[in-house]
Simulated assay, not measured.
Amino acid sequence: MNPWGPPIDVLPYFSKEEQSLMTLLSALTEEDWTRPTMCAGWSVKDIAAHLLGDKVSRLSRGRDDHQSDGPRPGEAFPRFIDRLNEEWVVACRRLSTDVLLTMMYEFMGQTTEYWAKLDLDVLGEPVSWAGDGPAPRWLDAARDYSEFWVHHVQLREALEHTPLEAEYAEPIADTFVRALPHTLRDVDARVGKQVGYTVTGKGGGRWHARRERDGWVLDRGAPPSRTPLAAVATDLDTFWRLCTRNAPDLGRVKTSGDENVCAVVLGMTSIIV
């Protein structure tokens, strides 16, 4: 059983988003690099360094089959990821902005090439927020792109810059909602019950999770049932902030149906925390 729904093609977006990011970063002043961001304790430079770390880590373990240390004994996976990210960012503070930009230019495009050479329909690494087992590579690629997009948006907000082009957000809601079946894993419902999620505006859509004998599965479109177990609706900006814990405006969220199930859905997280 495939709980994640139909594939998402994010390959057309990687290079364009990277080019937009580098155009932004290359025009920054030294003062701009030090601006604080919504990532507590991280400046604009720190988020840029984190993005570089994500890309070189993906290439090292995926393309080059490099094995690095795993979690310490008793260390939870999210804490392990947080520690690695913080260690990398702190180390990159020793770099000048020119050196950091040079390194980012060097690796731009290589993650796109990496994903383009793979069969994205086969199972690969787990996407932890979508389930514990192996996930299809297309979902892992979409996870990569969605994280790059979120950090790019955070940079633009910190810099009070023009918003990121709307076209780059087209696959974001469709990616983050793939966490819905895993989010509902402990919700006990009879076979056939459905939970709907609607994201309005450009890049939005409608999805529903349906209870099957072996768990919840996701599909595009509104729930076929006129009375789903629960339903949530909001706009894209609120949706991605909800899924990444980036200070969403809950006043822009509408719910109906079972209140407890709605609360579970609103706790959906599509990023490692």
Rank of each mutant, 00 (worst) to 15 (best):
A222H: 09
R245G: 00
V195R: 03
S43T: 15
E212M: 10
R58V: 12
H161N: 14
D119V: 08
K45E: 03
G201I: 05
A222V: 08
G196Q: 13
G192T: 09
D258H: 10
W4M: 01
D64G: 03
A222R: 13
P73M: 06
K16Q: 14
K55I: 08
T162W: 10
T234N: 08
L123Q: 07
L21E: 13
L242V: 02
N260Q: 14
D214R: 11
A173P: 08
C92I: 00
K55Q: 14
H182L: 01
D54H: 12
D64L: 11
H182T: 06
T34M: 13
A158M: 08
Y168H: 15
S60W: 06
D64F: 11
A209Q: 04
N2I: 00
S60T: 02
H66L: 14
Q67K: 15
G196H: 04
T200S: 14
V217Y: 00
L139F: 06
R94A: 15
T102S: 13
S256I: 00
A40V: 14
Q67M: 12
K117F: 01
A166V: 15
E106M: 09
P224H: 04
A27V: 12
A142P: 03
V56I: 15
R178M: 06
F80W: 14
E147M: 05
L123V: 02
T111Y: 06
P171H: 10
E212V: 10
V261Q: 09
E165D: 15
H50Q: 02
G201D: 07
V265G: 01
L123C: 00
L59F: 06
E167A: 15
P248C: 01
L123N: 05
G41V: 08
R178W: 07
L159S: 07
E167K: 14
P134I: 02
F77G: 04
S26Q: 15
L59V: 05
V90T: 14
W4T: 00
H152R: 11
L180S: 02
N85T: 07
W240F: 12
S256E: 13
L159K: 12
R61M: 13
V177F: 05
R61W: 12
